[in-house]
Design a binder for these strands. Structure first.
Lengths: 181, 181
DNA sequence: AGCGGTTGTGCAACTAGTTGCATAAAGCGT
DNA sequence: ACGCTTTATGCAACTAGTTGCACAACCGCT
């Protein structure tokens, strides 16, 4: 139930066409709620049908022609409602942890390489987040709503930090003590 | 593509019926890969059809009667293959972060209560993990495959620690500076 | 003018996961 | 022997997300 609200948020930040949204979902909002262009186009149609958004006037185009959307008052209200509504925290669900658990049963052969690759990817993501932090959230001025966005970015940074540390530990476990038996 | 492998891992650790698996998925493996009994029954049928598991002999029961499964050599091989195969890290996807981002646009009214609730839930989960750690992984002896399982549990502990800290920060953000405008 | 890449929108079919319900057997109290 | 609860398996229908492809318009090149 999150995708429509992700789109509403993105559209409130700036009215956009489907493709523009898709691009923006490749960064920013997409960092913690990714979506394909397919999902986005479908959801835009649905939201329009529900009267939460509308195409910017001065256009009624067909295929292959740009179509920009903006949020209607009903859409903003729905987003506010959703934001305030209680929701259960999402359960942790990670295939990598599952793989480690499986490796405890069938052995760790061939795993270390992929862990190293993951480590590298998480390091890169972390570096990207830090760069965004420096660019968008300089230490001094901090508008009230920027503080919230900064908080979200900090979550991303801390999570990537966790993964790099954890993967480093895991690899040490593999390389370090191959004795013990 | 993870559920079948989660089931294979669980069955290798101990042959079980569908219901027993469901219960075990409410803890242990389910802590990082949850599944409903529906998914499990369906997947068991599929895995049996593919010759990766079989019902324990001495039973050919119907509805309402227990049916236990064990992993066949082909199943173990498939699990080993999957464990060693490279996989991309799963993208972060969390509705709570989305909500904070939405709140930056439509306001934080009504949010703090639910954040407090989340904080409490994460604290509880953390306490539960720590208890399991004490029970199952005493500081001295550590069998080779227990080290891997311990590593996975540490990931859970660190992630819950992250969430409790982050939620505490977020709440401080709400309560602390209601000035600024 | 015509070809080829890029931009932009979208359908169809699939996989994964969830929810609600049906059904059967076994244990237990009376 | 009867009904009630618990244990156990499963079907059907749904929502969410992914993948592969089609198609139209536009832009630039030659």
């Amino acid at each position: 139930m999150s995708l429509p609200h992700a789109i509403l948020t993105a559209l409130l930040e700036k009215p956009s066409s489907g493709l523009e949204l898709t691009r923006r979902f490749d960064k920013s909002i997409g960092y913690f709620w990714s979506a394909t262009h397919q999902q986005i186009y479908r959801e835009l149609g649905k939201l329009e049908g529900e009267g939460l958004i509308r195409t910017l006037p001065a256009q009624q185009p067909a295929r292959g022609q740009k179509k920009s959307y903006e949020v209607l008052p009903a859409g903003r209200a729905e987003l506010a409602r959703w934001t305030a509504a209680p929701q259960d925290p999402r359960a942790l669900r990670d295939p990598l942890l599952l793989r480690l658990r499986a490796a405890a049963v069938v052995g760790t052969a061939g795993l270390a390489d992929d862990l190293r690759r993951h480590l590298e990817l998480h390091r890169r993501q972390l570096a990207e987040y830090r760069q965004i932090e420096q660019r968008d959230f300089p230490p001094d001025r901090d508008a009230p709503e920027d503080r919230l966005r900064h908080l979200v970015l900090r979550a991303g940074i801390d999570l990537e930090t966790f993964w790099t540390r954890w993967l480093t530990d895991a690899l040490a476990e593999f390389a370090g003590p191959p004795d013990a038996d």
